[in-house]
Nucleic acid binder design. Structure first.
Lengths: 151, 151
DNA sequence: GCTTGCCTGTTAAAATTTAACACTTGCTAC
DNA sequence: GTAGCAAGTGTTAAATTTTAACAGGCAAGC
C-alpha cells in the first residue's frame, strides 16, 4: 500500500478498532493500542520481536497477548509465511478473505479482495467435501515500487 | 487424502524423490530419506518436533537441514499456518501452485490444484503491478471423513 | 591418491513462544 | 457504595523452536 494517504488510513483504522472492540464488549486498552499503533505506522510486515522493541512495556507476554487479541478480533493479520503481522484494512468485514501481496524486498503488504478467486477456491474445496473455516492466501513477490526502482 | 492407496502413493513418492534428487545433482541421503519416509507415513501435517521424535538421529540440525533441503527441492510443503510439514503430491511439477485443505480435527491434508482460482489470483496480483514468485493457499476446516464422523 | 564440494555429527546458543500466578481495574448487582 | 466477578496486566521463569559454528567424512573427478 504505497499509494495511500497514510495519516488518514491510520486514523480510520484506529476508529474502526475502537468500534470493533466496543462491539465485542472488549476494551481497547493501552497495551492493545500500543501494538496496534506500532503496526499501523506502515503497511509493512513486522515480527513479534520488531513490535516488542517499540513497545512501552517490552515484556514478551504483553506483546503476545495483545497480538493474540487483535488477531482474534480481526484487526490484524498474521502473515504466516513470514511469521509476522500486519494491520488489516478490511476489519469492518470480519468474514472477508484477503489476498496478501507481500513484497520480499521491502516487506510492504498490499491486501486485496479477490472475490472471483475466492469463490473458485471455495468451490474447489466443496468438491472435496471439505468445509472451510479459515483461508490464508499469501503471495510473495515484488511490489510495484520495488519493481520500478530496480528497472 | 483419506481415499488413496497409500502403499502405492508412498512408493511412487519415493521414486519421484529419487528422480528429483538425481535431476538436481543432489543426493537422497539416509537423513533425507528418513525425514521423507516419516512424513509420507500419512498425509497428516507434522511439526519439526513430531518428525524429530521419529528420526533415527534425533538431533535438531539433522532434521532441520533435511526439511530445508526437501522443501527447496519441492518434495514437501511447509504448512505455514500450522508451522508444520507435509509431503507434496505434485512434486513432478516444481512450479505448481497447490491449495492445501487442512483438517483442523485430524490434521489430514488434501492438496489440490485449483487452476481457475490460481489464474484469478495471478490476474488480481498483476492488476496491482505485483510480480508474484511464491504463492501459499491454505484452507483450514473440516475434511470429509471428520464431517461424516460427527454427523 | 588428492582435491573439491556436499553432507553429516556435535555442541551450544539464540530466538520465539508459553505457563503460571498474583495483582489490578472496571463493571454490575445488590 | 461496595461486594463480587470477569477481563486484563505485570512479572518471573521456562518450554519450544530454530540457527550458528566448526570439525569431520564421503563420493566423484582429475
Amino acid at each position: 500500500m504505497t499509494n495511500c494517504d497514510h495519516t488518514l488510513c491510520k486514523t480510520s483504522a484506529l476508529k474502526e478498532a475502537e468500534r470493533v472492540c466496543e462491539q465485542l464488549g472488549a476494551r481497547f486498552t493501552d497495551q492493545r493500542r500500543n501494538v496496534f499503533e506500532i503496526l499501523w505506522q506502515s503497511h509493512k510486515a513486522m515480527t513479534a520481536a520488531d513490535i516488542m522493541n517499540e513497545m512501552t512495556n517490552k515484556q514478551p507476554p504483553i506483546t503476545y497477548r495483545a497480538l493474540e487479541f487483535l488477531k482474534k478480533s480481526g484487526l490484524i493479520h498474521h502473515v504466516t509465511s513470514l511469521n509476522a503481522y500486519v494491520g488489516c484494512i478490511y476489519a469492518k468485514d470480519p468474514n472477508h478473505i484477503g489476498q496478501l501481496l507481500i513484497c520480499t524486498n521491502c516487506r510492504d503488504i498490499n491486501e486485496i479482495e479477490p472475490k472471483n478467486a475466492v469463490s473458485e477456491l471455495i468451490k474447489a474445496a466443496k468438491n472435496q467435501d471439505f468445509t472451510p473455516s479459515l483461508t490464508h492466501i499469501e503471495m510473495l513477490g515484488i511490489c510495484k515500487t520495488c519493481n520500478n526502482a530496480t528497472s
